[in-house]
Design a protein around this nucleic acid. Structure first.
Lengths: 182, 182
DNA sequence: TATTGCTGCGCAATCCGTTGAATAAGTAGT
DNA sequence: ACTACTTATTCAACGGATTGCGCAGCAATA
C-alpha cells in the first residue's frame, strides 16, 4: 500500500481537501500516478481514524462545505518510518505490451495505428512535464528539487517509451515490406 | 483487467498448465510483468467457466496430475476483440518515486543508499533482458519478433531508470556539499 | 429554460491482488 | 535419516482499487 504515503507527502507542505488532492493527482503527479476521488476520500477517512491527519470544517457559500486536511505529528512520524523502509520495485502492467506480445494475431496496421495514438498521448505528457520542469528550474527554489526530480523521472519515462515506439515501428514496417513483397 | 489477456496470449502457441504459466511469468515476461500462481489458477478457472480455454487432465506418475490448458475458438475471438480495443495508458505506481517526492523529510544519505540498492536490481534485470534479447536476435526466428520487442521495452525502461538514478545522485551530492559547506 | 460542467463529499458492490497455508509425492543434498 | 526443494493445484481471508451511483448547489452556455 502506498497511496496513503503519497497523500501524506502531498499534505507535507500544504493543507488540502480531498478534492484538492484528487486534482493534484489528476494533474502533475497524476499523469504518472493516479487515484480516483473515492479512493482518496476513503484513505483520508482511514488516515483520520488513525490520527495521521486531522481536518477542520470550512463552510463556504456558493460552494459546498469542505474539509481541509493537514498532517499530524503522528502522520509525519509514520511517513518518516515508511521512507526509511526499502521499497519494492514496481512491476509494469502495460496492456499495450501484452498486445505487442500477442501481435502475431493482429495485423501490423492496427498495431501501428494504436502505437501512433499512444505516442501522441505520451508526447503530450512529455511536453507538460517539460514545461513544469522548466518552470521549477527557473525559479530555482531549493525545496522544489524533489518535485523537479520526480518530473525528470516522468520525462525520461516518456522519452524511453517514444524511443521504443520508434523501434517497434521500424521493425513492423520491415516486416510489412517482407510480407507484401512475397 | 488484463492478466486474462496476458494468459490468452501465452496460450496462443502452446498448451500449458497453470504451473507452466506461473514459471513463464516468473521468467522472461514476469520480470516486467508479474503474477502469482494463485492468481493464475484463479484466472484460468474463470476463463474455463467462460469457455475461453479448455483443459485436459494429465495423470503423471511421480508428480501430481496436471491440467493442460489450451485456448478455444471463443478465447481467440475474445483476444482479437481485445487487441482491437484501444488500451488505457498504464499508471506507474512507483513507491520509490513517492519517496523522492517526499525527500525533503529524509536525509540524502539514506535516499542515496536505497537508490544504489534499487540500481543494483535494475542493472541485474537489464543484463537478464539483454541476454535473452541477444539470444532471440541470433536465432532470428520471425515469430519471436514480438517477444523481442517486449524485451526491448524492458531494456529501455531499465536504462531510463538508471539514467534517472544518476541524475538524482548528482543532484543530491551537489545539495550535500552545499549544506555541509554552510 | 434546459443541459452541461464544476466544486465537494460520500456509500455500496464487486473485482483484483497479495499473503498464507494446506496437500501430496518425488528428488537431491547433508 | 532428515531437511529442503520442485512439481502441481487449491482454499481462505483481507485489503486495495475500480465502477457505479447519489446528493447538493452554483455558474455558464445553448
Amino acid at each position: 500500500m502506498s497511496l496513503r504515503h503519497a497523500i501524506l507527502v502531498l499534505l507535507q507542505d500544504q493543507e488540502a481537501s480531498g478534492y484538492d488532492l484528487a486534482r493534484e493527482f489528476a494533474n502533475s503527479i497524476g499523469l504518472v500516478w493516479n487515484a480516483t476521488h473515492q479512493q482518496i476520500y476513503l484513505e483520508l477517512g482511514k488516515l483520520n481514524d488513525q490520527h495521521m491527519v486531522k481536518f477542520r470544517h470550512i463552510p463556504q457559500d456558493g460552494k459546498p462545505d469542505k474539509k481541509l486536511y493537514r498532517i499530524t505529528e503522528e502522520g509525519r512520524d509514520e511517513l518518516i518510518r515508511w521512507l526509511r523502509k526499502p521499497a519494492a520495485p514496481p512491476r509494469i502492467r502495460d496492456a499495450f505490451m501484452v498486445k505487442i506480445a500477442g501481435g502475431a494475431l493482429s495485423d501490423s496496421s492496427s498495431i501501428l495505428r494504436e502505437l501512433d495514438d499512444q505516442a501522441d498521448l505520451r508526447r503530450e505528457r512529455l511536453h507538460t512535464f517539460e514545461a513544469l520542469a522548466k518552470k521549477l528550474d527557473e525559479q530555482g527554489r531549493e525545496k522544489d528539487l524533489f518535485t523537479y526530480l520526480t518530473l525528470r523521472r516522468g520525462i525520461l519515462d516518456q522519452q524511453a517509451w517514444l524511443h521504443w515506439a520508434d523501434e517497434v515501428k521500424t521493425a513492423l514496417n520491415k516486416r510489412e515490406i517482407l510480407s507484401t513483397s512475397v
